[in-house]
């Protein structure tokens, strides 16, 4: 088969499809568990903050980037105008 493909100079497409799927699905499956973790984090962090200041559920953004060397957990909370001196967590 390989001499045939090299003869015609065209790589078969199925192995490319398989490799793309394996990479994509590894990523998506990891993401599924992650989004659960994120929503749990969001819920608990919000609970703590609510004890001190009133913030809107939608004004809390949590993001996680998992890199090879460094992973980053980014928490962005928009605090209402009146309580501004209390905290600006970022």
């Amino acid at each position: 088969m390989s001499f045939l493909t090299s003869l015609f100079g065209r790589k078969t497409s199925a192995p490319i499809a398989r490799d793309r799927l394996q990479i994509l699905l590894a990523h998506e499956r990891a993401g599924e568990g992650q989004s659960e973790l994120i929503s749990k984090l969001q819920e608990e962090i919000l609970e703590v903050i609510k004890r001190h200041i009133s913030v809107d559920q939608d004004k809390v953004q949590i993001k996680m980037d998992r890199g090879a060397g460094v992973s980053m957990l980014e928490i962005d909370i928009e605090v209402p105008e009146a309580t501004k001196p209390a905290a600006k967590a970022d």
């Binding site: 088969m1 078969t12 497409s13 199925a14 499809a17």
Partner: peptide, 16 residues
Amino acid sequence: RAARGEMLRTEDVLEI
């Protein structure tokens, strides 16, 4: 087509 490498083979789909 799967034998010619033009379509995902059964083993590929099962593995994934």
